[in-house]
């Protein structure tokens, strides 16, 4: 593989896809990410949990530089994130992102939402892209909605379209920021099912979620964040049955009683 040869220029661990080293971030005086060091391997599924305001979203958004960081370095497949500009746009194309509030393009049909990136960013042939987009919509179970506008879909359907839109770019890694927390309970499962399937197919995923079921079935690792720090990292089974820190015990006690 030629790809491996170019990617492995200066990373010793060739299986590391996302590497955060000494990352710090402030919002004004508020220190929201405190000396974060994380390595996410190719094909790994990492679930990030923690109390509200602990910095989970900020961490997630830092990985594709929707939030710039103040200190440290983030590498994607061996390449440091470039500053704002064409290079960054190119890198973002390789990182799929799914938002809590879906953020589908309101003026475009479902099909056009999925096709926009591949056609405008990858500059691929529209006919070919359309076939692939329809297949993706089929896969996430919303093919019948292809010609509707986002506002005509349920929340669960919109979120599945958003996943298809991200997948259409054939990303190296997918970021999910609380993808189910804006959904009615009966729609959560249809979105989680798609995500579990994706995880089983080997997609590298960073998922901010409080869905313990998803963490148990799909995650390789759980990271517990509190006040901008990663306090604990463990396999799901280990973390849920035997949390080390008091903060994690406290937090789990609260969410598991709900």
């Amino acid at each position: 593989m030629t790809e491996a040869a170019t990617a492995a220029t200066d990373t010793t661990d060739t299986d590391a896809l996302v590497v955060l080293t000494g990352v710090n971030k402030w919002f004004g005086d508020l220190h929201v990410l405190k000396d974060i060091n994380v390595t996410i391997g190719r094909g790994e599924v990492v679930v990030v949990i923690g109390p509200s305001g602990s910095g989970k979203s900020t961490l997630c958004r830092a990985i594709n530089r929707l939030e710039p960081i103040n200190e440290g370095e983030i590498r994607l497949d061996g390449v440091p994130l470039p500053a704002e500009g064409k290079g960054l746009a190119k890198l973002r194309a390789d990182v799929g992102m799914v938002f809590q509030s879906f953020n589908l393009f309101a003026h475009k049909t479902v099909l056009d939402n999925v096709m926009l990136g591949p056609v405008k960013v990858r500059r691929r042939n529209a006919g070919e892209v359309k076939k692939q987009a329809l297949a993706l919509l089929e896969r996430v179970g919303v093919a019948e909605q292809a010609n509707k506008y986002p506002a005509q879909l349920s929340g669960g359907q919109q979120q599945r379209v958003a996943i298809a839109r991200a997948l259409a770019m054939q990303p190296k890694v997918m970021l999910f920021d609380e993808p189910t927390s804006a959904l009615d309970p009966e729609m959560i499962k249809e979105v989680l099912d798609v995500m579990v399937e994706l995880a089983q197919e080997g997609m590298t995923m960073v998922v901010v979620t409080h869905e313990m079921g998803f963490a148990r079935t799909a995650a390789n690792r759980v990271m517990f964040m509190d006040e901008g720090k990663i306090l604990e990292e463990a396999q799901p089974q280990e973390f849920f049955t035997n949390p080390k820190t008091d903060r994690a015990k406290d937090f789990l006690g609260k969410i598991l009683t709900h």
Binding site: L66, A89, R92, F105, H107, L116, G117
Partner: peptide
Amino acid sequence: VATGQAEAARAVGLTFGQTLTHVILPQ
């Protein structure tokens, strides 16, 4: 136009100009 629209466009990999012309200005 909601900020989420621009963020989603950037996340897909659209450049600043493409984000404006394909997502923000039409809306």
